[in-house]
Amino acid sequence: MTIEGPNHVKPEYRIPLTEVLWQLADDDLVIAFRASEWLGLAPHIEADVAFASIAQDEMGHATMYFELLEALGEGSRDDLAHLRPSAERRNAVLLEIPNGSGSYLHEPHFDWAFTVCRHYLYDVFEALRLEALTQSSYLPLRQVAQKAIREEVYHLAHQELWLRQLAEHSKLTRARLVDGLSQAMSWAGDLTWAAPWQAAFEEFSLVPGYRALQQRWRDAIDRKFREWGLPLLKAEMPLNGRDGRHTRHLDDVLSTLSEVYRLDPTAKW
């Protein structure tokens, strides 16, 4: 089954399609924000450049998904990215958790270990989800996924290298890594959580194999964690972002992202 574009979308297909797109767009927008906070502040100049490039890729993906929503008549991409309240956001809560204490402007006591762990957990899921999306019934989404997955391979390799280096370097770096990983896992549950109503993602072949992604993600990270001698922690879900439940941190993220746009959303910027 292939749906060529917005003009071929029937009402029963439209609801799960937009749900998938909200999830994709919101995930990438929020993780791009968190990654960009490190700009100019990463522990190493080379790491700064690499992480900046990753942040840009994620923001680029978010933009493509918001454009697909715009093409479906959901509103302008910039209104969708900047003006929706946090209760309408579908990003995983894991992605909105701050990089550490302080903000990118004041007293940024950021935690590199948590940052790379969180990003790794996301990249593993993102790669699996994109792989599934390359078989999506919605042609414009399939095309975006084919483009994005090429970049995701590099992101994943980059984060794997960080985790392995920190795990193997010394007792101290391993302890810091495990601490970062525990923090990340204490929020990671909703990243891969599949709601009963998301059965439609599979029924319409929007995300083929969606419900199996959770287990595939678990298997993929466990395999690596065993290899690196890291604990296999449970992915907790204190809040479910896929249901629009978020921490207050998301409000901070959104108010920063939209600070200038909100001055005048009708103006040309």
Binding site: F33, T63, R77, D78, T256, L257, V260, Y261, W269
Partner: peptide, 11 residues
């Protein structure tokens, strides 16, 4: 960088 996340539009 102060303006990176605050830049008004996605582009």
């Amino acid at each position: 960088k102060e303006w990176v996340p605050k830049a008004p539009t996605l582009y």
